[in-house]
Write a protein that binds this DNA or RNA. Structure first.
Length: 215
DNA sequence: TGCCAGGCCCTCTTTAGGGCCTT
């Protein structure tokens, strides 16, 4: 299994978010909605959103949390077809998600069912935000949206709405790195390295990128 | 009906524990 960041554009990426029946695909949980936005050169240029029928019952807790009900997915397309479309949507792009370890587990589990494999890079906006916005009260998506006054329609726990807010968070972090930390052209590759760098070594990463003393 | 996981990160750490995040 190799990660193919170098073969993908550093300035084109897809921000995605799943709503699911629970926390663990290994325990039988399934995706019930996928939402995503395409960012090209700092602008949202395309969107993807579909509710899907997972073939298992959605717990009441999840119905209340997301507003996605068993009745809503009853006549929706099944996961295999929706995930096939999503595979085409993300083709050739790197990915971003908030708390990406969660969404990546579901992405790989759903793709495995249709014999697909994603070989690009995935960056976690939560890990990036913990490094870039260290003074935030916490790093939940809703808190960061308020903290940075990000555009949002007040809807949370729906896939496209969360992906949109995460996309604005991503652009806000690139702006912060450029203007506050002097990074010349922060992009996916830099953010990937940022999230892999221990917090106490961040100053070395910043220095390496700019050649200047980090303040 | 109600429950489930896992990676990161900090610290009173590394022979560990617990909070933060995601649904």
């Amino acid at each position: 299994m190799s990660i193919n960041i170098q073969h993908r554009s550093a300035n084109h990426l897809v921000v995605f978010d799943f709503e699911t029946t629970g926390l663990s695909p290994d325990m039988g949980d399934r995706a019930i909605e996928i939402g995503a936005v395409l960012i090209e050169d700092g602008k949202i240029t395309d969107r993807f959103q579909q509710v899907m029928n997972p073939g298992i019952r959605i717990p009441l807790f999840i119905e209340n949390l997301t507003g996605i009900t068993n009745a809503m997915v009853k006549d929706a397309r099944k996961n295999d077809f929706v995930m096939g479309d999503f595979y085409e949507f993300i083709a050739g792009h790197n990915l971003v998600a908030h708390n990406a370890s969660f969404d990546e587990r579901f992405l790989r589990a759903e793709f495995r069912r249709i014999k697909k494999y994603f070989s690009g890079g995935i960056v976690c906006s939560l890990l990036a935000a913990r490094r870039i916005f260290q003074a935030a009260p916490n790093h939940q998506l809703v808190t960061l949206a308020s903290y940075k006054n990000l555009p949002n329609d007040g809807v949370y726990h729906r896939a496209l709405a969360d992906a949109e807010v995460t996309a604005h968070l991503w652009l806000s972090m690139l702006d912060e790195l450029h203007h506050q930390h002097g990074q010349p052209s922060p992009n996916f590759d830099f953010m990937f390295r940022l999230t892999k760098t221990p917090k106490h070594q961040l100053h070395k990463l910043y220095q390496k990128q700019t050649g200047k003393e980090f303040v």
